[in-house]
Design a protein around this nucleic acid. Structure first.
Length: 224
DNA sequence: GCATTAACAGCCG
DNA sequence: CGGCTGTTAATGC
C-alpha cells in the first residue's frame, strides 16, 4: 500500500488535498511496472484508471496509416494522464508506450470521480492541468509546420521540463539522446547534432544520459 | 542537400 | 562489462 508521503512525492495534485482526502483515496491506488517497449494501452482500449508516472518515461502518440509514429507528448515522472477518457467515460484516444522500464500508479475511475465531485483542491489542480495542456497543444499547432530538427528537439525538451505538468523537474532531465530522439521524431545521430547546437547556444548543458536546462524560454520559442 | 541507418571507438558508471 | 556518446561512411528521398 502506498504511504501518504510517497503519494505526495509522485503526485503533485495530492499536495492540494486535505489529509482526510489523501487518507481516503490512497488505499485504492496501486502500482505496476511496465518493461521498456511495452504498450501501456492502445488506441481504442477501455481503461478504467487514471494513471501517473512514478518513474521512467512514456510516449503518448498515434500511428499513421503508413505505420509512422507521431508523438503527441512525452510523459516524465510526476505526470498524470487519462483524465479526458475518464471524465467522458470513453475509450483511449492514443497509444501509450514505455520508452524505458517505468512504474505506473493507477487510480480507479471511482476514486477519480469521487475526488472530482468532492475535493476543491483536486478540481483546482485539474483546471490548471487542462489549461496547461491546452497551451502546449496550441503552441504545437502554431509552430510545428516550419520547424527544423533543432527546433522540434528544443520544443520537446521544453515540454518535458514544464514545471506545472511536471513539477518534479529541478533543472536536470534524465533522458538519454536516443529517448529524446524517439520523442522528437529524430534519429539518434540527428538528435546528437541538434543537442550540440543547443549547447553551443547555451540553452542547455549536456551530461551523461541527461542534460540541464539553462534557458527554458528560449528553448520553448526556438526557431519561431 | 539533408536526414537516416550502420558501424565503431571511446567514455562513463 | 554494458550502455551511452560522438563521428564517419554509405544510402535514400
Amino acid at each position: 500500500m502506498l504511504s501518504a508521503d510517497y503519494l505526495r512525492g509522485i503526485a503533485f495534485w495530492a499536495r492540494n488535498l486535505t489529509d482526510d482526502e489523501v487518507e481516503r483515496i490512497r488505499k485504492t491506488i496501486t502500482e505496476k511496472t511496465v518493461q521498456k517497449g511495452a504498450y501501456v494501452c492502445h488506441r481504442g482500449d477501455k481503461l478504467d484508471y487514471w494513471m501517473g508516472v512514478a518513474s521512467g518515461l512514456l510516449r503518448l502518440g498515434t500511428m499513421t496509416q503508413m505505420g509512422k509514429t507521431v508523438t503527441l507528448a512525452g510523459l516524465p515522472p510526476g505526470e498524470w494522464f487519462g483524465e479526458g477518457s475518464i471524465l467522458k467515460n470513453v475509450e483511449r484516444q492514443y497509444d501509450l508506450v514505455a520508452l524505458r522500464e517505468s512504474k505506473l500508479a493507477m487510480m480507479p475511475r471511482a476514486t477519480f470521480i469521487w475526488l472530482y465531485e468532492n475535493s476543491p483542491g483536486f478540481n483546482r489542480f485539474l483546471v490548471s492541468q487542462l489549461n496547461e495542456r491546452l497551451g502546449q497543444f496550441i503552441g504545437m499547432v502554431e509552430n510545428d509546420r516550419a520547424l527544423d530538427a533543432t527546433g522540434r528537439l528544443a520544443r520537446c525538451i521544453a515540454w518535458l521540463y514544464n514545471p506545472v505538468l511536471n513539477p518534479k523537474s529541478d533543472g536536470v532531465l534524465e533522458i538519454n539522446q536516443e529517448e529524446i530522439g524517439l520523442l522528437s521524431g529524430l534519429s539518434r545521430q540527428a538528435t546528437n547534432r541538434a543537442l550540440q547546437t543547443l549547447e553551443k547556444e547555451r540553452l542547455l548543458e549536456l551530461h551523461y544520459a541527461g542534460m540541464r536546462v539553462l534557458d527554458l524560454e528560449k528553448l520553448r520559442g526556438y526557431g519561431a
